[in-house]
Amino acid sequence: MDMLYNILIDPFVQMVDAPDFLIQVVWEGFVAGVLYALIALGFVLIYKASGVFNFAQGIMVVFAGLSLVGLHQKGVPAWLALILAIGIMAILAVCIEKFVMRPLVGQPDIILLMATIGMTYFLIGLGEVIFGGEPKQMITSELGLPTGSTAFEMGERGLVILQHIDIAAAVIALLMVGGLAVFFNRTRIGRALRAVADDHTAALSVGISLNQIWAIVWFAAGIVALATGIMWGARSDVSFALEIVALKALPVLILGGFTSIPGAIIGGLIIGIGEKVGEIYWGGLVGGGIESWLAYVIALVFLLFRPQGLFGEKIIERI
């Protein structure tokens, strides 16, 4: 009976008793969800354009963040370092298209997946050689991003603390999603990109350059990776451990669908808020630490009912 009370009643009593804390938990989940969504966006972009599950998206986040901080440590002013980091991601995109994607055109998906796994380890090694293995502090204030926090008092002891960098992360994520939505739907390149995603051969037959599109989409994923690296790096620091955190995007993708930009955002928020609320209010019942697997459970439950994800395209194959 106690067990049922602890599962079904007590968490909600806690929520009502301390609404400020509930708001804080939801906010923290929202911010984590935004960051998961940003990582998932990188996956979605590449999957949409080439059908490749880019295992290297996590290390691209780390590589982009390290490039930015590493350049600044070498004495490059922050904003110039940011521009150069964008340039590095552009060069990386061109190299990936030329040396990885192009030679593997027409190969089965699993080969392309293996290629991205190979790229992951190559980039880990390259990053460690160039920047060293030490974690680096994100140059948050140098980039003009807000630091500090604002606290709102609620009742006698209630307090909600909002970090300014978290607010900035949410705004930047929204801007990026909006920008990508416009890019995909309103520009010529965006339409070409969608055409490539639908059918490579058909796209080629109407004169769309597959190579150019792939380079553009990898570059876009690189920009998303850089934004993610800056935001996540500001919360902790930029280290190779971030590469593992990026795998949190997997349940987001399962939930939101591999081809949907809104799906990545909604999926990210559901996972982010769900895991925080689950950990805080129900985690203690099993000794805590459920956050690392709860996201996958949420995704699996969705998978049972909507295998294509919330916003994924339902594929009907007629025999």
Binding site: A18, F21, Q24, V25, E28, V31, A32, W232, R235, S236, D237, S239, A241, L242, I244, V245, L247, K248, E275, K276, E279, I280, G283, G284, G287, G288, G289, E291, S292
Partner: peptide
């Protein structure tokens, strides 16, 4: 009061610190 941090969640500790705050 125990607050475990999984190895792959080292840079994602907001839940643990929210619990500590509570």
């Amino acid at each position: 009061l125990q607050y475990p941090v999984a190895g792959k969640e080292m840079q994602n500790q907001s839940s643990q610190w929210l619990s500590i705050r509570r």
